[in-house]
Structures are given as structure tokens and as C-alpha cells.
Simulated scan of single mutants.
Amino acid sequence: MTELSKTNIMEEIVSIIKKLFETDITCIGKGYENEKLLGIKIRLNASQLVYVLLECERLFKIKIPQEDIVKGSFNTVNNIADIIYKQLKINQKPAI
């Protein structure tokens, strides 16, 4: 996969949610990227969040670290994009 910016990653996450659940979370307006996906505004449920996780792993060819899930970091578009960006950077490092 070619190098992606965080903005590109966020757009892909929004696209995943729209494709899976026919929900355009950008219609919330400014700041949508920091709204909790399980929160009152976006209203995904836990099983839907699992589908988002699996689709992100498939699309970006990464593994989301379990500690990011347990810590509750996999909760907003912005945070998910940070996790993915970090994993993509780790995967780019040459093996020694």
C-alpha cells in the first residue's frame, strides 16, 4: 500500500462506516472525527465497532494492537486513524 496521510486514513474509515452501515458520520458536522463511535451522536454498537476493526485490518493490511482496544483507544475516527498510521509506519521499517 502506498503511504497514506492521516487525512486519507480518516477518509477511508468514514468510507468503511458508510459502506458497512449506510451511515454518513460526517453529517454530524465539524468535530465528527473526535466523536465516540459508540456515543450518543454516532450510535454504533459494539458489534458494529468490531466490523470496523476487521475491515480496517483487512483494508490497510495491518493488525490493530490488542492493547489499543483494551485501553479504549479504538473509539473515534481520529484515534483509529492514529493507530492505523502508527501501524503502517511500523510495518514500513526494514527488518534487521
Rank of each mutant, 00 (worst) to 15 (best):
T26H: 08
L37N: 13
F21C: 03
K6Q: 05
P94W: 00
V70S: 13
K30P: 07
I25W: 10
E3A: 07
I40P: 14
G39T: 09
G39H: 09
F21S: 02
K36W: 04
D24F: 08
L38Q: 06
E33S: 12
V52G: 04
N91C: 09
T7C: 02
S73N: 13
S73I: 00
I17K: 04
K30N: 03
I64L: 09
F74I: 05
A46W: 02
T23Y: 10
E33I: 04
C27H: 10
A46E: 14
C56K: 09
N91S: 12
K89E: 14
K6S: 09
I69V: 15
K63D: 13
F74T: 09
I13V: 02
V52L: 13
I83R: 02
Q87N: 07
V14T: 04
E22M: 03
I90D: 14
T76D: 07
S5E: 01
K19Y: 07
L37M: 11
D68T: 03
I69A: 10
R43N: 15
L54A: 09
E22A: 03
K61G: 06
E3G: 06
E35C: 12
I13S: 01
V14W: 02
K6I: 11
F21Q: 03
P65S: 03
K36Y: 12
L4H: 10
I90A: 10
N78D: 10
Q66T: 15
R58C: 11
F74N: 08
L54N: 12
L59M: 13
I25C: 08
I69P: 01
R43A: 14
I80M: 06
Q92E: 15
N75H: 12
I83M: 06
R43H: 13
I80V: 03
N34E: 13
I62V: 08
S5T: 15
L53C: 08
V70P: 01
M10D: 00
P94N: 06
G31Y: 06
K18S: 12
S47N: 11
Q87V: 12
G39S: 10
I80E: 11
L53S: 05
V52Q: 02
K93Q: 05
E33V: 06
V77Q: 00
F74R: 11
R43M: 14
Q87G: 01
Q48I: 07
T26M: 08
K30Q: 10
N8P: 00
T2R: 11
G31D: 01
D68R: 14
K71V: 06
L4W: 02
K63C: 08
K6C: 00
I96F: 09
K30I: 02
S47I: 15
I40H: 13
E67W: 09
L49N: 15
N8Q: 15
K63P: 04
N79A: 01
N34A: 03
P94V: 09
L37E: 08
I69F: 04
M1V: 07
N8T: 05
L59R: 14
P65D: 14
K36G: 06
I40W: 05
N8Y: 03
K61Q: 14
I28V: 12
N91E: 09
I16H: 01
M10A: 11
P65A: 10
M1P: 04
N8L: 07
L49H: 12
M1A: 14
L44M: 13
T7D: 11
K6N: 10
Q66P: 09
N78Y: 10
I16Q: 06
V52W: 03
L38M: 08
K30V: 04
D82L: 05
L59D: 01
S47C: 06
E12C: 05
S73V: 01
Q48F: 10
